[in-house]
Design a protein around this nucleic acid. Sequence first.
DNA 1: TTTGGTTGTAACTATTGACATTACAACTCT
DNA 2: AGAGTTGTAATGTCAATAGTTACAACCAAA
Lengths: 140, 140
Amino acid sequence: MQFSSRFTIATHILVCVAMFQEEQKMTSNFLAGSIQVNPVVVRNVLGQLSDAGIVGIRAGVGGAFLAKPAEDITLLDIFKAVEKEEALFHFHENPNPLCPVGRNIHSVMDERLEEIQNAMEQQMTETTLAQLVSETKDRA
Amino acid sequence: MQFSSRFTIATHILVCVAMFQEEQKMTSNFLAGSIQVNPVVVRNVLGQLSDAGIVGIRAGVGGAFLAKPAEDITLLDIFKAVEKEEALFHFHENPNPLCPVGRNIHSVMDERLEEIQNAMEQQMTETTLAQLVSETKDRA
DNA sequence: TTTGGTTGTAACTATTGACATTACAACTCT
DNA sequence: AGAGTTGTAATGTCAATAGTTACAACCAAA
């Protein structure tokens, strides 16, 4: 199991937009060139980021721009925009209620699984887009 | 994206084995009855748990048993036994080295992605099989 | 030593999701 | 009106999940 590459693609897109939106029009073609994926993939991800209120997109004329300050965009915001699954874990559907384990496994596990997912999401809030941009500029 | 149900199936198997191994022979058929999945699925997961040194399996005669104390088996042990992916995140392969973002996105992101995965795995070590068994007994 | 129950594994199928690509209608500025 | 762009549908490929059948190999007990 792996998360889809849409998460790193979305992050890549946002770092580009944050860095270059003042200088150039951020079209799906331009972004696709930096990421080296098909422009349609960029458009789809960009659409999800737009639905989440992270970017705005100029229809017709073209070009994406940040809809809020890079300081206010965390990796969790990006993750949630592109990964629509509510639950990280997939429970087997029909444990046998006649078995004491089958009857209780869900209630015993659910809280733990939630804590695990929370731990992951909490760590995702620790990084903002602004930090990624600043670090990218340092290295460039 | 979701983890496969093998993780919750494996956990279910282990709670059953820990609770009932003294009383009954833990065959794939018995376990499949509690989990309500095909016995072959149980045998495959059980094989992975055996490879990981978590359970032993009596060939021929049949039946699984814990290979170490339930206190020493954490959710992370179970998770690693059944999810063979090394990395949780899937990076897009070919960012453009001619772009300052494409050239540096990997080095900027890698450490963060690792921290996120570590946070998740750390939380998984907080729960042991012994706790799950004890809580299941309380509820039964 | 045969028999019965069990495991390990291969083979096949169905379903789903990811991703790339082509195509085109709709939109907006010049 | 035209050019460039977005949104989206359709299609194809590939890999993973999961269910199922089948059977050789194995071991203990009768």
